[in-house]
C-alpha cells in the first residue's frame, strides 16, 4: 500500500478517534445526556473506505449506516460541528433538531441517510434507494444486524438485481455483549456467496480493505470486516483493557508522521468540543 494513502487514511481515523474519546469523556461527565454509540476501535473501516471512494475514485455514494455511525459520518466528510451539536443536544445546530441522537445521524451534504434505530433496516432501504437511483451505494451493518431476516431477504434481491452496491459488515463479534458463536454457526461472506455476489472475510487493516477496491460498485459485493469495539455498546465504559487497538498499531507503523497527525487532531477536536460546550 502506498504510504501517502495510508497516511490519508490515518488522518481520517485520527479525526474519528479523537472525536470519540471526547464524546466518551463528556458522556462520562454527563454533559452528553443521550445514549451514544461509540465507534472507537472500528474507525479504520470507514476511514479506509472513504479515502478510497471519495479521494481516489472521486465517487460520492449514497450512504446508509446504522447506530454506530460517527466514524462513517466523519470519514465521509460530515460536518463535525453538527455532530457535536447533536450529541450535546443543541437544538439550533443539530441536523435533526435533536430528533435523531447518536444513532440516527444524517447529512444531505454527503448523501448520508438517517437510520431509524431498528437494526438492519438500512439494508433493504439502501437497496431500494440504489435500485431506483442506480447510484453507487454503500450500506453498513453490524454482525448482529446482518442476522435480521429482512437483511438476508434484501441481500438476495440486491444480488438478483446486480446493483452497484457495497455491503460492509462491521464485524466486532458482538451483539451488545453476546458473541457471534452463541448466535450462529455461519458466516456472512459465505451467505453473500450463496446469493451469488462477491463476499470476502477480512481484517480492518487499510491494506486488506484496499485489495478489494477494484470491485467497488461494479456489482454487489459484501465485505465482512473483522474489527474491535473499544468501548461499551452504548455510553462511556470499557468491556476490557486488552482489546486490540488498530489505531495504536497504525500509529506505530507510520511513526513520526502519524504522531504529528495524532497531536494535530487531538488539539483540534478538543478545541471544537470546548467551543460547543461554552455555548451550552
Amino acid at each position: 500500500m502506498h504510504k501517502n494513502l495510508r497516511i490519508k487514511i490515518f488522518e481520517k481515523a485520527s479525526l474519528c478517534r479523537h472525536f470519540e474519546t471526547n464524546a466518551y469523556k463528556f458522556s462520562e461527565k454527563k454533559l452528553i445526556k443521550i445514549p451514544i454509540y461509540l465507534s472507537a476501535g472500528q474507525e479504520f473501516i470507514s476511514a479506509s473506505l472513504a479515502t478510497i471512494i471519495n479521494d481516489i475514485y472521486k465517487i460520492k455514494p449514497l450512504i446508509f449506516a446504522q447506530h454506530r455511525c460517527h466514524s462513517t459520518y466523519l470519514s465521509f466528510g460530515g460536518e463535525i460541528d453538527n455532530l457535536i451539536a447533536e450529541l450535546l443536544g443543541n437544538y439550533r445546530l443539530s441536523n435533526t433538531k435533536c430528533m435523531g441522537g447518536s444513532a440516527s445521524i444524517y447529512s444531505k451534504k454527503i448523501n448520508m441517510f438517517g437510520h431509524d434505530g431498528h437494526m438492519g433496516t438500512q439494508v433493504p432501504i439502501g437497496i431500494g434507494a440504489c435500485f431506483t437511483s442506480k447510484k453507487p451505494t454503500i450500506v453498513f451493518m453490524g454482525d448482529a444486524s446482518a442476522e435480521e431476516d429482512y437483511v438476508l431477504g434484501a441481500l438476495g434481491w440486491a444480488a438478483t438485481k446486480k446493483l452497484p452496491i457495497l455491503f460492509i459488515v462491521e464485524d466486532n463479534n458482538l451483539s451488545i455483549l453476546t458473541e457471534k458463536k452463541v448466535r450462529r454457526n455461519w458466516d456472512m461472506h459465505d451467505v453473500a456467496r450463496s446469493f451469488k455476489m462477491k463476499g470476502f472475510n477480512l481484517k480492518d487493516s487499510p491494506r486488506e480493505i484496499e485489495k478489494y477496491k477494484k470491485f467497488f460498485f461494479k456489482e454487489p459485493m459484501l465485505l465482512n470486516i473483522n474489527t474491535n469495539r473499544m468501548f461499551w455498546h452504548a455510553g462511556a465504559g470499557k468491556d476490557s483493557d486488552k482489546t486490540f487497538d488498530r489505531y495504536l498499531k497504525e500509529k506505530k507503523i507510520l511513526g513520526k508522521e502519524a504522531e504529528k497527525i495524532d497531536k494535530k487532531f487531538n488539539s483540534m477536536v478538543k478545541k471544537l468540543w470546548e467551543k460547543h460546550l461554552k455555548k451550552q
Binding site: P124, G128, F131, T132, S133, D149, V151, G153, W157
Partner: peptide
C-alpha cells in the same frame, strides 16, 4: 419483489427516498 415481505417494504421505502 421477492417473497421477503418485510424487506420488500424497506426496498419500497428506499425507492421513495430517491
Amino acid at each position: 419483489l421477492s417473497m421477503a415481505d418485510v424487506a420488500g417494504g424497506g426496498i419500497v421505502t428506499g425507492s421513495a427516498l430517491m
